[in-house]
Design a protein around this nucleic acid. Structure first.
Length: 567
RNA sequence: GAUCCUGUAGCUCAGCUGGUAGAGCAAUACACUUUUAAUGUAUGGGCCCUGGGUUCGAAUCCCAGCGGGAUCACCA
């Protein structure tokens, strides 16, 4: 048996696997293991001599002749276990200890341990093993960071590429990574609790949509074969939740995986999670109160405190939060009053502030640019920015006191938006006009403008009660609550470019020559490529066939001309 | 898309003005019955990201490509 493609350590582990089988030990047993204890509980509730049964990965081994220590890591943490040869193998046959434990087990293997609690001479809480069983064999060596007496981690597994691509490894060896995701789940649970106890209902709405509505973004497109129509992955679920309010639910919410076909960076992933909630008979003022209560509740549930450290900033999620109108925010940071200004006045004011603007921008977009450039970044503590211009908010009700504004707020934290809410527009005629405005913007060249959803308008025509809606970027919020500057750190499996397997084909001299020529040229006429090689037609033919068969090159015919392409 | 940084053993990283590829951990063998970054002795392990170029000679210098990261631009 040879494994030329495997590393030395992988080969050795496969050999150990076979030796275990030869000894009659099943390296992947089927039966359940009757776990009744966890590492963290044993440490927290130590009782000398108490029998325990635990299971987990063995992550270190300290062998000292006839006795050994090992560390077992289970879901709760790590605990030291003690193996004694003559207790585990009371008779003449010491195979279980000498062979199985010392030689055939590897770091990373899952073990089941039965034994009793005790403290070592240096006072470390441990489990004295009376029986152990291999539960699953690990065939690949894990990276093994070590923590010294001073708490400094050595040889940490830190390469971001490896950590994201092999998150399972990251989670095994980097405890702090696991804690981030535990907090993420706590956040979701805390929100659910808060909404459920308020009497609102969690719902599910379509991810595949014929019209991608509810936000301005480029969608992912796919195709439904049976219907033979294009379908879009949702960019937002807003319009569906409002249909449910039309249908008579008082409060509905959904944690919505949204998909946007746009750039990726440390705050954007192509798929991300938003929470949206809609509550009937409320307005955006009520929603501000609700939001600050919600976030205070969530921060407490996740971190046990309303204070969160994010980079250099200390944020306090304790309610209430400051409320500033967008007009006032712009006055505060630029001295410019947007009230009553025409589009041209706004454009030249923006230019005067050094902001790049162009002719496709309407009033709303211009104000948005000014706010984004000059104001947004200054709001570190949670702050509600209210009363956005009408043009920017096509789904939002006109302000009760000023027809040029809408009843909208965004919650800014550390200079970034984490929540967005409206008194929802429920006037179907107004909504239709707003959609038509969006169409005009689209015609002017604004590729972010929204599509018109006729069915949504029909629903509004049946009547939607006054409603307030709120959307929260869950990924961004959990970044704040766990002090992570990168969205990749709060997603289990952030989007990565797929790994490309290097071709495993061994090419002969001629094939290599042709292939490297094509690596330079990318595409060539077959006849022209041929002229570069002074070889027999037969060799030419077989070499090219090898290359195409291994999908390194492809030959295609266009207008009676044969082209060779690099794949 | 632009700029900068980066790619060396299973993991974390050295490797100078070009000259036979190094350490710690992990692995293998031996010793060791309460250790804890266990210890001691010995041993094995490399397409130095890929392809070109310069050179007597390239992990090292140059060019191109690929992957990753950071910053910026774009994008709620």
């Amino acid at each position: 048996m040879s494994h030329p493609e495997l590393s030395e350590q992988e080969i050795l582990r496969r050999e150990s696997l076979q030796k275990l089988r030869d000894l009659g030990i099943d390296p992947y047993p089927a039966a359940l293991y009757p776990v009744d204890a966890f590492a963290a509980d044993i440490k927290a509730n130590f009782e000398d001599g108490k029998q325990v049964c635990l299971a987990g990965r063995m992550l270190s081994q300290r062998i000292m002749g006839k006795a050994s220590f090992a560390e077992i890591q289970d879901a709760s943490g790590r605990i030291q276990v003690y193996f004694n040869r003559d207790e585990l193998c009371p008779g003449e046959d010491k195979t279980l200890y000498n062979e199985v434990f010392k030689k055939l087990l590897d770091l990373g293997d899952f073990l089941g341990i039965k034994g009793h609690m005790f403290k070592t001479q240096v006072g470390e809480i441990s489990v004295h093993v009376t029986e152990f069983q291999l539960l699953s064999k690990s065939l690949r060596p894990l990276p093994l960071p070590k923590t010294d007496a001073a708490g400094i981690v050595h040889d940490a597994f830190t390469d971001p590429e490896l950590r994201y691509r092999q998150r399972y490894v990251d989670l095994v060896v980097n405890r702090q990574v696991k804690d981030v995701f535990i907090k993420r789940t706590k956040l979701f649970n805390a929100m659910r609790d808060f909404f459920n106890s308020a009497g609102y209902m969690e719902v599910e709405t379509p991810v595949l949509q014929a019209i991608p509505g509810g936000a301005s973004a480029r969608p992912f497109i796919t195709h439904h074969n049976a219907l033979d129509i294009p379908l879009y992955m949702r960019i937002a679920n807003e319009l569906y939740l409002k249909r449910l309010i039309v249908g008579g639910f008082d409060g509905v919410y959904e944690f919505s995986k949204n998909f946007r076909n746009e750039g990726m960076d440390r705050t954007h992933n192509p798929e991300f999670t938003a929470m949206e909630i809609y509550v009937a008979y409320k307005d955006y003022n009520w929603m501000m109160d609700f939001t600050e209560q919600l976030l205070e509740h969530c921060a407490l549930a996740v971190n046990g405190t309303t204070i969160a450290q994010f980079g250099e900033h200390t944020i306090d999620f304790k309610a209430p939060y400051k409320r500033v109108t967008m007009r006032q925010a712009i006055i505060d940071f630029t001295g410019f009053d947007i009230a009553g200004k025409t589009e041209d006045e706004l454009r030249s004011a923006a230019r005067g502030m050094g902001i790049e603007v162009d002719e496709t921008m309407g009033k709303g977009k211009l104000i948005d640019e000014i706010f984004g450039e000059k104001c947004e970044g200054n709001y570190i503590q949670p702050t509600f920015i209210t009363d956005y211009p009408k043009e920017m908010s096509p789904l939002c009700k006109v302000h009760r006191n000023d027809p040029s504004l809408t009843e909208r707020f965004e919650l800014m934290v550390c200079g970034k938006e984490v929540a967005n809410a409206y008194s929802e527009l429920n006037d179907p005629i107004d909504q239709r006009e707003r959609f038509e405005e969006q169409l005009k913007l689209q015609e002017r060249g604004d590729d972010e403008a929204m599509f018109i959803d006729q069915d949504f308008l029909r629903a509004l025509e049946y009547g939607m009660p006054p409603t307030s809606g709120l959307g929260i970027g869950m990924d961004r919020l959990i970044m704040y609550l766990t002090n992570n500057a990168s969205i990749q750190e709060v997603l289990f499996f952030p989007q990565m470019r797929p790994e490309v397997q290097a071709p495993k084909v061994t090419l002969n001299e001629t094939e290599t020559a042709i292939f490297s020529k094509m690596q330079q040229e990318k595409q060539l006429l077959l006849s022209e490529l041929r002229t570069h090689f002074d070889i027999s037609n037969k060799l030419w033919d077989t070499s090219l066939k090898t290359l195409t068969k291994n999908q390194l090159l492809a030959v295609s015919k266009e207008d009676d001309l044969l082209f060779v392409k690099l794949l």
